[in-house]
């Protein structure tokens, strides 16, 4: 059985990726299951989706905590989420990056496929939805399913022009994906993006490392009463893929950026100017849009 975990942001189509892959496998007569991590997170928040493929019927319904392959749809996730958590030794990685792919190699990783999926998606689909693009890179790296099956799954899923464009995006990614194997890079000589991790202990593979889990039932407050303002511990800055940048010389200190921020992430400094609280800014861009003097513009968040 092959276990694949997808990391994306709400709205990028991570779940659709997993489903398309499963659909392609099923069309080939294999068995597959795809499902999302069900949660309250919204558009822009890191999410994951899972796909299992096997020649025998797949019966497991647990989340994938020791994947064979990890697919990352958004480059801003590398620093936000522990994407390689639990990745099996000699596993594979499929990533969306415009960076030199060798940097993403680490000890224990067998191979990786890298593709500038955001650019491909922007050019072909006119929006940064990278799910079908990364599937192209995935099948180039690993013959999980045939490209034709994947194309047919895309055509079944979408219709008309959207289907055609997605097929185009997938094919281009298949062509352009750069494949790196363990021996290709001298890992010692580079600044690593990922560290090799200790494999999870036997029996503990299924335990996601989430702080919530630390609570014992005896530690809960009566009625599960919660302290005020405590979401401040939840830093939503990692949802951000674009970042507001201020030009002080154009700022009239009107405060509209502050008033219209959904995340209270514009903070007035003692000098009267406003600065972005990177802990919470989700990069929505309302401040830039609403600034009456055009003092704010959005820039792409730097990749790892």
């Amino acid at each position: 059985m092959l276990e694949i975990r997808f990391h994306g942001r709400g709205g990028q189509g991570a779940v659709t990726s997993a489903e398309l892959l499963a659909q392609a496998a099923i069309e080939e007569g294999k068995y597959a299951r795809a499902f999302p991590s069900f949660g309250p997170e919204r558009r822009g928040a890191p999410v994951s989706a899972f796909c299992r493929i096997d020649d025998k019927p797949v019966t497991l319904r647990t989340s994938i905590d020791s994947p064979d392959v990890v697919v990352v749809l958004d480059p801003s996730l590398f620093s936000a989420v522990d994407v390689t958590r639990g990745l099996r030794k000699d596993g594979s990685l499929v990533i969306n990056t415009k960076k030199e792919p060798g940097r993403f190699m680490f000890h224990g990783l067998k191979q990786l496929a890298a593709v500038n999926a955001t650019q491909i998606a922007q050019e072909i689909l006119n929006r940064p939805i990278t799910n079908t693009v990364l599937l192209g890179a995935l099948v180039r790296l690993l013959p999980v399913v045939k490209v034709e099956s994947l194309i047919s799954a895309v055509q079944n899923r979408f219709s008309g022009k959207i289907a055609d464009l997605n097929v185009q995006a997938l094919e281009r990614a298949y062509e352009e994906a750069q494949i790196i194997s363990a021996g290709d890079v001298d890992i010692e000589k580079q600044v690593p993006c990922f560290q090799e991790k200790e494999p999870p202990e036997k029996g503990k593979e299924d335990k996601p490392c989430k702080e919530d889990l630390d609570y014992l039932w005896t530690e809960l407050t009566p009625g599960c009463v919660v302290q005020p303002g405590s979401t401040r511990d939840n830093l939503t800055g990692d949802w951000r893929s674009t970042l507001p940048v201020m030009q002080k010389e154009r700022c009239i200190q009107c405060g509209l950026c502050w008033a219209f921020c959904p995340d209270a992430a514009q903070v007035q400094e003692p000098d009267g100017f406003f600065s972005v609280d990177l802990d919470y800014c989700k990069g929505c861009g309302i401040c830039a849009k609403e600034c009456p003097t055009g003092a704010i513009h959005m820039e792409k968040e730097l990749e790892l």
Binding site: P40, D212, Y215, W217, L220, G223, C224, V225, V226, Q227
Partner: peptide, 18 residues
């Protein structure tokens, strides 16, 4: 204070046990 927060799968069991 906040009453009536919701519990994710990581905590619903503990809430019910309590």
């Amino acid at each position: 204070l906040t009453m009536g927060a919701y519990a994710t799968p990581a905590l619903y069991t503990e809430a019910k046990k309590a």
